[in-house]
Amino acid sequence: MPITIGLPASLLTLPCELRNQIYFYIFPNAYELDDDDDAQLQEASHTPSTLTLALRLHPPSKYTDPAPTLNPTNHHLNLLLTTRQIHAEAHLLALSHTPFHLPSTYTTPSHFIHQTRHLSPTQLSAVRYLTLTAKISVLRALNETWNNLPFGHPSLRLERLTLVPRRPDCTTSCYAEVAELSQAHTFAYVLAETLKGLRNVRVVEVRNEGCFGQGVWRVLYRSLVLRLWRWGGVRCGVLFEERGSEEGKGWEDGVGGARFRVFFGAARGVGVGREVGEEIIRLAGGEMPALSTAGAGF
């Protein structure tokens, strides 16, 4: 009796349901990264990756633009460069699970649109996690040119936008302390004006990776909360969560790990964060300051 030899097993010979399960393991959910993994992700982002690399099946030499380099933390995206079938059925899932790190040039909407022109609106709407690293002078574009949309682009629907401010050039001069405090107040103003009308973002996270000293970082956060309280009262449509506050660590867990998150819309119903009025009371030591003198303790 003849023996029938089947085709060798491979990823593409599996049923599509099993392939989808494998893709879910290959592209882990960036929003569920723990603090250690997330910190390593940020430390490895000195050379930001572009959004378009994940979607290119041809060798970079076939493109007129400079060939982008893949972020080491995004090496799993290489799977999309193997076959057209895998790319077609997995690239949207990959985009929605991969945190992309962007350089400061992406801050302005015109440059963001130019650099992502290879992506369709559907592909851009699949992107969920973006980290922007830039000096505060560049981050002013958040409220000056974004028009209440992330990067000014209507197709983006972000789960998390992470902002990593960088130190100004004059931090080594004799005016370093003055410059740092001035930059903190500028950044607090930019954030407050941006958060008042920002749409299509679930969570904004701000990380302090050596940009500000501990005291100035604390001033920045308090200034932001106070500005939003003055604008919207005890409820202004967002919730606040300070790193380490639930564990009783406060600001003592170090400058490199300090961060806070601001939750919008649907994220308000997941049991995290505090209303601006509650956060003002916590920062003021348990007593709500009068509106006319609220800035005295900050």
Rank of each mutant, 00 (worst) to 15 (best):
L156D: 05
C174E: 04
T133H: 02
L102N: 04
T82S: 14
L77A: 14
W146E: 05
N71W: 01
H118L: 04
T172H: 14
A141D: 13
L130A: 00
V164T: 06
H76A: 15
Y106W: 12
H118M: 08
Q85C: 01
R128C: 03
W146R: 06
A179P: 00
L156Y: 01
R84S: 15
R117A: 15
P150E: 07
D169T: 09
H101W: 02
H75G: 10
A94Y: 13
P72K: 09
R166A: 04
L163R: 03
V138C: 03
H76N: 14
Y129Q: 02
P168K: 11
R117Y: 07
H75L: 15
T98M: 05
Y175W: 02
R84F: 11
L70A: 14
D169P: 07
F112E: 01
L95N: 09
P154R: 00
T172Q: 12
E144R: 11
A134M: 00
T107N: 00
P109F: 15
N148V: 04
R167P: 11
N74E: 15
T108L: 12
H97N: 15
S104C: 06
R167C: 08
T171W: 07
Y106F: 15
K135P: 05
L132N: 02
R117S: 12
L132G: 06
L102K: 03
Q85Y: 08
Y129T: 05
A179G: 08
L132F: 02
S110V: 08
E89C: 10
L80Q: 10
S173W: 07
S125W: 00
G152P: 01
L124K: 14
T162S: 05
W146H: 11
A94D: 11
H114K: 15
L130E: 00
N74K: 12
